[in-house]
Write a protein that binds this DNA or RNA. Structure first.
Lengths: 232, 232
DNA sequence: GCAAAAGTGTTAACTTTACACCCATGT
DNA sequence: ACATGGGTGTAAAGTTAACACTTTTGC
């Protein structure tokens, strides 16, 4: 166990980030290998202490950048964890954030020395993590599954022009179930927020799919009036 | 403004509680009148710092008790607030909890001297509060409204034996809309979780309503299988 | 007998589900 | 010609929404 005779901190707080990554196939979670005690060499989600004069949302962004090289990611707070002994060095309450992004398998480079490396790990098979990070990831997954039923999550994960099958794969990966293609397409198109473009896939060895785009500004104005975009 | 030349704290954390009260009529929020700086004599929601060796959930319970005399209330964490300057004396991140309880107009007695008094205030007309407490109450209300659409909130607010009209009033107060009686009754009964008792109201100057009870253990087992009790 | 809330059914509109075949493209 | 995923319609079942009158009780 990584607990040792480490100096005690005053009570303090940290932020932790659960970053889900999707790449047309599989849902993964971003883990780092820690390079500092406690839990040195353990896998963990990116997290660290908040500076004294730093907003917690800003701290989450900074910490994620330092440990993984990722930036400009919209992080959403979902829960805080504050058991007395969740941190072996002292009392640390952590505010947890999550996001889901397009995954590409290049470009995860820790900027600070706190993490040795950063990599994607399948969301359905998370290893044992440092601190209470398994609990944090579980709660983030629940939150994500819940959220997709009332907000259009998918469009952050897709290029501006995407096919309906790409969109369907996102729902299937997050909800962990197969969805009927015809019913899915009918439902998504019924909201009137997807515009079919005069463009098709090229170079695919099957019938080329149409590209669509998501009408974000129209969504925002409908949302204000109580409209809900989702799939249960 | 209540900011003064007060001593600076080290970074620290607090808990704040938004307690909704319902009494067959109206939804209210529990406020206290502060008796300590900062914001002395302002209205606020009950909240205070967490002790070094105290779990945050336990701290929320303790603080609520000390400021209002209420105890044995199931508090649910819903968000944390951590702007740099939300507390005039220094950096204080707060973890916010909410609950909804049966309101009776006796028995709100601050135990500690931090609050001068505690009282219920209509939820649709909250006055200006200390710190960022207006923002916290707003977010709690949103959370409550959202929650009622997928969990059976009402039964904590009712006596064990209740009428369907009492239940309907809860939904109407929280969702802020009128609901059709027949449709409401059909929907609630369709879940098969309400048992009609062989008892009726007494002494009412109109036809006496039947009492029902909620089958909590059956609900819990259905919930595990993915069942959702709610009204949208 | 009047006021007040309880209790009760039906219909139309809409939503969800289940299900199978032909189409376009590259190799 | 075949393998691959794209694209399409319908019917049955279930859910929601709208709507008005009779019953019971106390005063």
């Amino acid at each position: 166990m990584a607990k040792g005779n480490l100096p005690k901190l005053h009570s303090d707080f940290s932020v932790d980030c659960v970053i889900f990554g999707f790449d047309d196939e599989e849902l993964k979670v971003l883990l780092v290998e820690r390079n500092e005690p406690p839990f040195k060499a353990w896998k963990a989600i990116p997290g660290n202490l908040v500076y004294d004069q730093e907003d917690i949302d800003a701290a989450a962004e900074r910490v994620l950048y330092e440990l993984t090289g990722l930036h400009n990611i919209f992080l959403e707070q979902f829960y805080s964890f504050g058991s007395i002994d969740r941190h072996p060095q002292g009392r640390v309450i952590t505010v947890a954030y999550y996001s889901i992004i397009k995954r590409n398998d290049n470009g995860l480079h820790p900027v600070s020395g706190y993490a040795k490396k950063a990599y994607w790990w399948p969301a359905d098979n998370i290893p044992k993590l440092a601190f209470d990070h398994n609990e944090i990831v579980d709660k983030a997954l629940q939150t994500l599954r819940h959220k997709i039923s009332y907000e259009p999550i998918g469009f952050e994960l897709l290029p501006e022009k995407f096919t309906l099958t790409q969109l369907q794969h996102i729902y299937e990966a997050i909800l962990q179930k197969r969805i009927d293609k015809r019913n899915f397409r009918r439902k998504m198109l019924s909201y009137g927020l997807l515009t079919e473009l005069n463009q098709k896939q090229k170079g695919v060895s099957h019938r080329a799919a149409s590209f669509f785009k998501f009408n974000k500004s129209r969504y925002r104005s409908l949302k204000k009036k109580g409209f809900i975009f989702g799939l249960r």
